[in-house]
Design a binder for these strands. Structure first.
Lengths: 191, 191
DNA sequence: ACCTGAACACCGTTCAAGT
DNA sequence: ACCTGAACACCGTTCAAGT
């Protein structure tokens, strides 16, 4: 990669982050190029699709999310680890408005640049889920895709202006459905 | 309304239904006008916003959904009525791909043409929910907006290609969280 | 190698001009 | 009253022409 190309790459990524923060995941590519003071075609060659742009934009955060699962696995009991990670996942998936739709469709499309990172996240969740299921604290009739789907659904809800205020409560309701100890999974936080 | 205007109105509605079936809720307005053999401006005056078009397009179905609640209220015990209606609601909200996002945002925007119909649906669900709560078969820490949100979330999930196959199972998980009789709400169908 | 500008086929909005 | 065509400001894609 030539020096000027490298510089443009970084510049575009920084500007994209800014624009996407303002306008969400379906921000105008043209706008990003314009603000970066670069030809639209230049942006499009660095990132031929919206997915490749977001793959670069979210890479670090997606890796952190995947890593977080392993961390919680050793530091917390399985059910707590699962819920804590689920919460982090919901928050991430909603970090940029509209990104959840991108990830949901990437999850089903092996050609998407976001497919691999999504799969990694899914696998990380799977491990936590299986631990909790083995322990008997998570419902057994659920798999990693269900977990990913529910995470996406909560992320989507939190991104809808009308539902956002209820996000925390809906999170509580859904995690309550995932865990099996209906007795007191609400208060279970500092045990 | 003049005769030709009336004719155009009906024609546009029919064509719109067709195009939306093919391309989902964010179909091109221009395309609808084109297929109807009418100027774009004509479509836009009959339906100044996408919401007004969908208000007309969904009116009958939304009324049917609202009506269905009252019907179930008298024909079934509260918990069954709630779940049955919830199922119909999820199916409806997913009748046209992408319509769920339209409804979710209309739900929070009193200026939207879809605001009133959404409110009616919400209220219809509220009655069923309250009956079940009074009976003790639905969790008490939930209100009509939560129900509407969960219905929307399931509709959204069903609209995502990757999650659609799991729709029924996710429906089961979420209704399990709404009802309180965790013992056997799965099999409870023909009692 | 890498970048650019322009042409292209789209989109929804707006409005003066027609019947 | 109602409709139309065109102008406008956008969008992403593509590619020949420049350095």
């Amino acid at each position: 990669m030539r020096a000027d190309a490298q510089k443009n790459y970084c510049l575009l990524l920084a500007v994209a982050r800014e624009v996407v923060t303002e306008h969400g995941a379906d921000a105008s590519m043209r706008d990003i190029a314009r603000r970066a003071g670069v030809g639209l075609a230049t942006l499009l060659r660095h990132f031929p699709t919206r997915e490749t742009l977001f793959e670069a934009l979210l890479r670090d955060n997606l890796e952190a999310l995947t890593h977080k699962a392993g961390e919680l696995e050793t530091s917390s009991p399985p059910d707590e680890a699962l819920v804590s990670w689920f919460r982090v996942g919901v928050a991430f998936v909603n970090s940029y408005s509209g990104v959840v739709a991108l990830m949901a469709s990437a999850h089903a499309d092996p050609d998407s640049a976001l497919y691999a990172p999504c799969k990694a996240v899914r696998s990380a969740g799977a491990r936590l889920l299986h631990s909790a299921q083995a322990e008997g604290t998570a419902r057994p009739d659920m798999d990693a895709d269900d977990l990913f789907a529910l995470m996406s659904a909560l992320g989507w809800l939190a991104g809808q202006p009308g539902f956002a205020p209820r996000g925390e409560h809906l999170f509580h309701i859904i995690t309550g459905a995932i865990l099996t100890n209906h007795a007191g999974n609400a208060i279970k936080k500092a045990t």
